[in-house]
């Protein structure tokens, strides 16, 4: 009897102990495009604030926002704006969510290194992904069937690309639905007929901080008559000449306070934005930082 009592006590203590740490641990979940960047930001932040643990998980923008609504994370990473339906669900659950822009992404269209094509217009890319153009020779390349790589429907990049490039039409049913940015990059490196889209952070080598040389990043033009720009061109991304640049978001469940607020402030700081740049994404300007600061209040 005594033994059971002791066991229960120990078990209870363990349980409450783990619950306490679970409460202190800040949970961040969502976008696969953002997961590496936020992971690095969290590591740097934790190096300075060792008593503020942060856990960063991927899963896709849709998964992150669903987690925010269901109360399983404190911050959702997402690479597309929240949908009206999701905002409504937040309101129903009385979540006073705050959305911040933490970085800018030049969404990159990539092909195999051996591909002869360098530039492409948005409508051509759209036609390829809708399945209307199925052979590289139709866009001036070699005669081989195009092999499409994209993301799964829980991905923010999937939704953003569908809205902006496909004109809210269906993806070709032949598109391979890959699990994340890294898998698309791996696929394109091996597939001579492949085309894929990933966040600009994934076409930059994480060690050398230079563009990867085992794949080709296409220059993208707004339409057939305009000039094509590279997503690595900072000025073109800022000015909007690169047509598929997009903001990357973090949304907090409620007004940020404690570790969440400290972490967000760290991201908006010069030091945080330096990490954003080092990871291949583009830092946010002063206007966005000011807007973020206002939302913190």
């Amino acid at each position: 009897m005594k033994k059971i009592l002791t066991l229960t006590l120990i078990f209870g203590l363990l349980l409450s102990g783990s619950m306490l740490t679970a409460q202190k641990m800040v949970q961040i979940k969502g976008s696969d495009t953002l997961v590496n960047l936020v992971q690095v930001l969290a590591e740097e932040f934790m190096a300075k604030n060792p008593r503020s643990p942060i856990a960063v998980l991927g899963g896709g923008s849709g998964t992150g926002i669903a987690g925010l609504i269901n109360g399983t994370c404190d911050i959702a990473n997402h690479s597309r704006p929240m949908k009206e339906k999701e905002k409504q669900q937040c309101k129903e659950k009385r979540i006073d969510y705050r959305t911040f822009i933490i970085a800018i992404d030049g969404l990159s269209v990539i092909v195999n290194k051996s591909n002869s094509i360098n530039d492409m217009s948005m409508d051509k890319i759209g036609a390829i992904y809708r399945g209307e153009i199925t052979n590289w020779k139709e866009v001036g390349g070699n005669d081989m069937p195009i092999s499409l790589y994209g993301r799964q429907s829980n991905s923010g990049t999937y939704v953003f690309f569908q809205d902006q490039i496909l004109g809210k039409q269906d993806y070709s049913a032949d598109m391979k639905r890959m699990n994340g940015n890294a898998q698309i990059v791996e696929g394109i490196i091996q597939d001579r007929a492949g085309i894929g889209y990933v966040g600009v952070g994934y076409v930059v080598d994480s060690r050398t901080k230079k563009p990867r040389n085992d794949l080709k990043i296409l220059n993208v033009a707004k339409n057939a008559n305009s000039k094509a720009y590279s997503p690595l061109n900072r000025a073109a991304v800022d000015s909007g000449d690169y047509p598929i640049a997009r903001p990357l978001f973090q949304t907090s469940a409620g007004k940020p306070n404690g570790v969440v607020a400290e972490f967000l402030n760290f991201i908006f700081s010069a030091e945080g934005q330096k990490i954003v740049k080092a990871e291949g994404f583009f830092p946010i300007g002063k206007g966005i930082i000011d807007a973020n600061m206002n939302k913190m209040k």
Binding site: G59, G60, T63, S153, N154
Partner: peptide, 18 residues
Amino acid sequence: SSIRTMTATIAIELGEVP
């Protein structure tokens, strides 16, 4: 050709479905 089985469809979509 690239295909998607029943199990894969469930595994991919059940995680994020409302």
